[in-house]
Design a protein around this nucleic acid. Structure first.
Lengths: 230, 230
DNA sequence: ACATTTACATATTGCATGCAATGTAAAATG
DNA sequence: CATTTTACATTGCATGCAATATGTAAATGT
């Protein structure tokens, strides 16, 4: 069963739609096409030709909506950022003990990091970064700015999910950075493993135990994420 | 002060050298040039032109030695693999307690993961991977094979460094995979942060504590990597 | 010293690519 | 319904790129 996103080709004329509806649908299809293509075939093979084919539109439509490749990349980064923010903000907080919140948060974050949204973001930032010493034209993805934004989003969600676990700003940043690094690392191995990769549930459980131990040292001894030695 | 690797331009004719010496030097320069270029400017901007300029040879020389781009990439992966194996095999083992060995091993591994060797390897594998559905010409980097090799190397070194910590094959693989993921993740954030990124010593310390706790659960309570809460 | 082999340099070719310019279709407005 | 605006399609151009073909320089063998 093919995994590639298929564009439904309608053989009958579409019923009349508003321009806003047309615009929204076309932009959405183009963004989805780019996200899928980069995740599946890599940044370099995501050509204008491939984008047009996958999105089911011509390059003129892409140009009209986004101006060009850089404009699409910026839009894709924005969409991916929203995907991340949407995922992690789904973490239930009220009346939930620390361990459960940590577990839920890590699971939600992993939904993003294991998705093609993350991979696409990572490839875009990696490829755009190498341009630093080139022309001064507007950067579609100011890498430091995106990372700052990502850290801010992490911090905001973290504080809302763990308002009762505040070991201090510096230490919180460290724990967040560690968490982000583990998730990125698992995502990196997933990228290279491709199809057939298993959910790294043991690794995620170890991460959860680690986070709980760092946030609440006294409660970590009796941790429900503990793994029985086989 | 520029960080780019500079090729020394000799204005006087070199003294006579053997062909083997000439071959070794040229190949070495080309491999170093590609490693540096990919790490600094990204895979896509590492063109034949850039490689020739950086290595101080012409494309004809590159072709003669490597056949083409794919040949260079395969050679660069090999060199990077050796860099990794060299680093981690420097871990002192005899008469060293577990915690010290863990610390040394992680530090040595980080020397590789924080290096341009790792970044170059990662970019090559990421870019080559997207070709899977293209022509059937010989793959310069069979990604699954490289990963299998990497896991084998990890396991060999791991067993030699931790012969007294054998919780079982499955669990060892899990701990190795977690370790590799954390290092990859720290490397991924380093890639995007670029210059000015600090050594993530706290994250590496937490990783060390985690490994010790997983390898020797009973000794982890009095762990010298413990961080005082600020 | 000369012939052969290997290392390297140079010029050219064919292809892929993003984007600009221009034209057409669909929706909105008067 | 006519005009205007916006969405989209088509064509062509300029550039960058890897690789090929061929020639020259350096090292080796006889």
């Amino acid at each position: 069963m093919p995994r590639a996103h298929h564009v439904e080709i309608q053989l009958t004329p579409k019923k009349r739609r508003t321009q806003a509806a047309r615009t929204a649908e076309t932009r959405s299809r183009i963004i989805a096409a780019v996200t899928d293509l980069i995740a599946e075939r890599g940044f370099a093979r995501t050509t204008a030709q491939e984008i047009s084919t996958r999105a089911g539109v011509t390059w003129g439509a892409v140009q009209h909506h986004f101006g060009g490749k850089d404009g699409i990349l910026a839009a894709v980064l924005e969409a991916s950022f929203n995907h991340f923010a949407d995922r992690v903000s789904e973490t239930p907080v009220a009346g939930v003990d620390l361990e459960t919140r940590v577990s839920s948060f890590v699971d939600k974050a992993w939904e993003h990091y294991s998705s093609r949204h993350y991979r696409t973001t990572f490839e875009i930032l990696l490829n755009v970064q190498g341009r630093d010493d080139e022309s001064s034209t507007a950067d579609p993805a100011d890498v430091p700015r995106w990372q700052g934004r990502m850290y801010e989003a992490w911090n905001e969600v973290w504080i809302s999910v763990f308002p009762d676990a505040r070991p201090g700003r510096r230490r919180e940043f460290f724990i967040q950075h560690y968490t982000l690094s583990v998730l990125s690392g698992l995502a990196a191995t997933l990228m290279l493993q491709g199809d057939g990769a298993q959910l790294p549930s043991e690794e995620l459980d170890l991460l959860k135990r680690t986070i709980v131990a760092e946030l609440a040292p006294s409660s970590s001894k009796d941790n429900r994420f503990d793994k029985k030695v086989d």
